[in-house]
Nucleic acid binder design. Structure first.
Lengths: 199, 199, 199, 199
DNA sequence: AATGAATGAGGCTTCATTCAT
DNA sequence: TATGAATGAAGCCTCATTCAT
């Protein structure tokens, strides 16, 4: 799909803001700075976003949506809850690895912001996360995973670990390669939750 | 140990700041507000803390130190890496459960702050976290846990899950009981990392 | 007389602006708001009026002119300065009563604006007000009114009272009927200025 | 009574603001300008007044109060409603004559401002104006004035005329001497409202 | 040691106005 | 002629921080 001129301007502002917020921090970044970097006037930013915080909250809307669409697409092709979880973890890690500024904004300034909870962008994320819960429940139902599992807790393990790794990564730069953790991470989690067949 | 008058004043400011930051957010809270709540003048706050951010960074120093001392004490009494991990998770969750304001400040405003990394308070936390790594390594060495485990990853799973649960807990207004997660959480993690004793 | 399309658009903008200024205040009202209400673009407003203040100053031009033409017409038909003053006061009050938005704009945003003094609209008003002075002078000359009267002062009494009543009326939301003040007002004024015919 | 240092600062700001508003207009005047003229920082202004408009509304509080106290004092010493009205008109005109900046602010920016209605300063004014109504009612009761008079209308005549004259004076500078109007004005008004005794 | 009072510094935001189509 | 889109310009206001007592 081709973007209108307006959409291009808007995307430009969002991308620039993502970079500036990631580099300088949300509070430290100024609208002046973003405008300068994006080569638009400050007033133009306010044509598209009502406040500086509104601009921040607009960042995840689109890219999160895309990620979760891709995820839904892949999940249809994969059989087995364990394999699906592996794919999910990979897609998350790969997505963050390839969008470090976005990852930084998400981990450092959006999650942990109470006001973000009431936001369109957050609703998109919540919808995506539901997919994880569904996969876990699917695994429990078909006896891949233990019957006594609390799906919320399992999901928290997966998301929590990812968030912790990614947060460390954006804050310290280590480790360089996020995706190398996917396999060992998933192995441990799957072993931790799988049904103990025929021991 | 008895506290000097000065120490009492300082502790009063820190406790008040913790509460105010937790309730209103770090950026939203003002020194004026903290001073009013603590019934001291704004200038007095600057007698003890050089900046607003310095005040924030001073919050974990003491209580974290205490937590990790308690932890070290308990770990000496417990045999088995798995049991030690259970104790660790419990101590964390119990500590947050009993100090929700402190938990909120830690999860929402300190972790994710790059400047906090260079801080005394953060060093205390790092020291404490080393204990977790040591327990994991101990478990690997004595064949309780799989040989191929990456201790950093396991530690990230544990901390990441805790952080995720506690963050959710403080952001949604502390509805559930945190400590009830300890057992199922540890069960899954242990099963996920334990050596497969020929089942 | 039929209006050209352009004149219709211009009148539409003026009428809308009058309403919006009256409801929201001159400073508080925005061009955007007026444009939206008038269903034209902001840029279109600038085709007809050079500035926001120019738009404000254009409001009285036409309607004031009309009022004073009507007034001149009536005055020709009336005999006696006292009767003429009564007619004048009635015409003013009746006009404001029937155009409350215009009355509000005139009383709240035009009178009291120094820049308005140099304006076409203000000159129209001044011309109209001269008629009042003429009537007063006529009354003095033909011994209806006292010889020692200062016509400027009498005119100020009449206009000042009208302005005060109308201002109160527009500021409190037009509760009363303005025209019912005409008779008692004129009675007192006439009695106050008429020659004391040896009672 | 001696003023505290704080009260002196506050009065200094109010007096400066009065002058600047009178000279440049409320909208045109800036806080920066007032601060510079008053030789205080902009922030200091906000220590005493919550907003620019709050500063404007604070201007009449004190001086109006003083005026109406003086008025109440004089009225006690004067016998006869007509004489009292004369005193009232004189006190108003004299007060405005001696405080032209205050008169300008009051006439051009306060009266005609709907938000001012809900203000402490406006309540002070309303209280003062009640005194006028009382004098009029007193005159009606003791047969100095006509029985059929509407006190609100008479008060409107007096205030309206004063306001009109003062407004013209602050906007154009004419006439130079306001108080010269007191006697002819009062003469006309009294004659206009007095009971027609035995003529 | 403690504070009331004062301010420096700068950001966000608003809108009237313009311009390219 | 009409307008959607873009911006220049500037002001209000906030607050962390300091200073004199």
């Amino acid at each position: 799909m081709t973007l209108t001129k307006t959409q291009i301007r808007k995307k430009n502002i969002i991308d620039t803001a993502t970079r500036v917020f990631a580099q300088r921090g949300f509070q430290e970044a100024t609208i002046t700075e973003i405008a300068k970097e994006a080569k638009v006037s400050e007033a133009s930013i306010y044509e598209y976003f009502s406040t500086k915080e509104g601009l921040l909250f607009s960042i995840p809307a689109e890219s999160s949506h895309t990620l979760f669409e891709v995820m839904a697409f892949h999940l249809k092709l994969i059989r087995g809850a364990a394999n699906k979880l592996r794919a999910i973890v990979f897609l998350f890690m790969d997505s963050y690895q390839n969008n470090p500024d976005f990852a930084a904004v998400l981990m450092l300034f959006l999650k942990h912001n109470k006001k973000f909870l009431d936001t369109k962008g957050h609703h998109a994320i919540k919808e995506g996360i539901k997919q994880i819960t569904q996969v876990i429940e699917e695994g429990i139902e078909n006896n891949e995973f233990r019957k006594d599992l609390n799906p919320y807790l399992v999901r928290s393990m997966i998301l929590g670990t990812i968030e912790h790794l990614v947060t460390n990564w954006v804050m310290t730069g280590n480790p360089e390669n996020l995706t190398e953790f996917v396999d060992p991470l998933i192995d441990s989690i799957i072993q931790g939750i799988e049904a103990q067949t025929q021991k």
